[in-house]
């Protein structure tokens, strides 16, 4: 059952991604990107990563894409559908790169959960959420109670320094944007 849900979500994600890059009008294109992110959030839920799914929807689908849409709406007023994508060698490079990615994916594919877990170094693959339903939802919630803790521990203990460096980098980017946008500070 989980596999059926996975394939539905995967088809939705890939299909929306294709529609996203093939639209001429930027607004439907942005909406298809939201749809891709939503389908990815569904796949995260299937992987028992509910917190990451919530963050995916909250940050990417809910905030970043709304800003995108906001900017597109402001800049794209009354202009006809235009595209500045060039034909010729660019298409060739894109096709080659795409073929390379597909080849890499096929070379590294391993559909069995045990094989994937062995490759990632884990011994017992995470149980599907649907397996836990039988015992009643109270137990399943107890099993997931650590949804945030399991993310917070590596982020704020093991990898604290890289995490803080990343946030300083983001802060520098934000300050830089303000400096660029304001003529006089």
């Amino acid at each position: 059952m989980a596999e059926i849900v996975f394939y539905l979500l995967a088809v939705a994600a890939v299909g929306s991604a294709v529609l996203c890059i093939s639209q001429k009008n930027p607004i439907p294109s942005a909406l298809w990107l939201v749809s891709t992110m939503f389908a990815l959030a569904g796949i995260y839920v299937l992987l028992n990563a509910q917190f990451i799914a919530a963050m995916q929807v909250l940050v990417y689908a809910g905030a970043v894409m709304v800003l995108f849409l906001f900017v597109i709406m402001l800049l794209n007023l009354g202009r006809d559908d235009q595209t500045d994508i060039k034909k010729g060698p660019v298409v060739l490079v894109a096709v080659l790169l795409g073929a390379g990615i597909v080849a890499a994916l096929i070379a590294t594919r391993d559909t069995s959960v045990a094989g994937l877990a062995a490759r990632l170094g884990g011994s017992n693959p995470a149980a599907s959420p649907l397996d836990l339903m039988g015992g009643g939802e109270v137990q399943s919630v107890a099993a997931f109670n650590n949804a945030i803790g399991s993310i917070a521990k590596p982020m704020f203990q093991t990898y604290l320094v890289p995490f803080e460096l990343t946030s300083v980098l983001l802060l520098a980017a934000a300050v830089g944007a303000v400096v660029l946008a304001k003529r006089k500070l």
Binding site: Q50, F51, A54, L58, A61, V141, N145, A147, I148
Partner: peptide
């Protein structure tokens, strides 16, 4: 398990 984060999202 994500409770009110789902509501925010």
């Amino acid at each position: 398990p994500i409770g009110f984060l789902f509501v925010l999202a």
